[in-house]
Design a protein around this nucleic acid. Structure first.
Length: 268
DNA sequence: TCCTATGTTGTATG
DNA sequence: ACATACAACATAGG
């Protein structure tokens, strides 16, 4: 489920354990790719008896701090999620990591196992965290930052462009489609074809959809039916703005949904 | 059975 | 260097 707003939502779930000591660490399926780059016994030894001291998100990434000098990075992949479970909880088949605290378990589960765990030591945040690109809602994420990327990736279709985490951290498949639909930009338009005015428009909708997604997440994930999001998966869905039947096609390797009327190709 | 899936990475190819 | 297409990862659900 995880694009940036839902990643933040998952972080908040585990944040219920802030300030509480880890009394037991259970690891499962440690041969699975989830653990690639992290040795489960190390993780157990590192986290045990430390307190969960803080957490943050960056795009689709999460970072949890334990004590002063231990860090756990989590990427939820396609189907990962975090939960808080009662003390008598029995681990399910898709639970890969569980941390017991005084009155609950913090559980990471992921049926498809595309998620990743990453352990780091040291007082400072790990370098793979501090090197992440400017977040979309930060002051460093400017129109010029987007324009520069469009110029560099001038042959990339906008849909594929928005999925590039190196510049648009946290944007995933549905957000990209929502942004392009609101900006009335066809997903196949090549990044280098956008005028400065259209780049400005794209930039503003990137920020708008990000802010709105965070807000909806706070309000229980009730997206109004005026969003493309609500129609994109329906068979024969229609554009909530003009009623035209939505188009669907793979672009940049992902199923893309757009309105052929609201989002025309650029005219020459 | 076949197809799809809110993600990322690697390989082959142009 | 850039870009695209595709497979791979692993599982569930329509």
């Amino acid at each position: 489920m995880p694009e940036l707003a839902e990643v933040e939502h998952n972080r908040q779930i585990w944040a219920r354990g802030h300030g509480n000591k880890v009394l037991e660490v259970v690891t499962r399926n440690i041969r699975s790719p989830i653990w690639q780059g992290t040795r489960a016994p190390d993780l157990v030894k590192t986290l045990i008896r430390k307190s969960l001291s803080g957490s943050e998100t960056h795009g689709k990434q999460m970072l949890f701090q334990f004590g002063r000098d231990a860090w756990l990075g989590i990427h939820l992949g396609m189907t990962g999620r975090l939960s808080v479970e009662p003390p008598d909880y029995r681990l399910g088949k898709h639970d890969h990591l569980a941390l017991r605290q005084a009155d609950h378990w913090l559980v990471f589960s992921d049926p498809r196992r595309f998620g990743r765990l990453r352990l780091a030591h040291g007082v400072d945040r790990p370098s793979w965290w501090t090197r992440l690109p400017p977040p979309i809602l930060s002051s460093r994420f400017t129109k010029e930052w987007v324009a520069e990327f469009c110029a560099r990736r001038k042959g990339t279709p906008l849909k594929a462009l928005l999925l590039m985490q190196e510049r648009f951290p946290g944007i995933g498949n549905w957000m990209a489609d929502e942004i392009l639909w609101r900006a009335r930009l066809n997903p196949k338009i090549l990044a280098g074809k956008l005028s400065s005015a259209l780049i400005g428009k794209l930039y503003r909708w990137i920020r708008w959809v990000t802010v709105a997604a965070m807000k909806e997440m706070d309000e229980n994930w009730e997206f109004p039916s005026t969003w493309l999001f609500r129609h994109r998966w329906e068979a024969g869905g229609h554009c909530p703005r003009c009623g035209t039947e939505l188009a669907r096609e793979k672009i940049g390797g992902r199923t893309t949904c757009w309105c052929p009327v609201c989002q025309p190709q650029l005219s020459k």
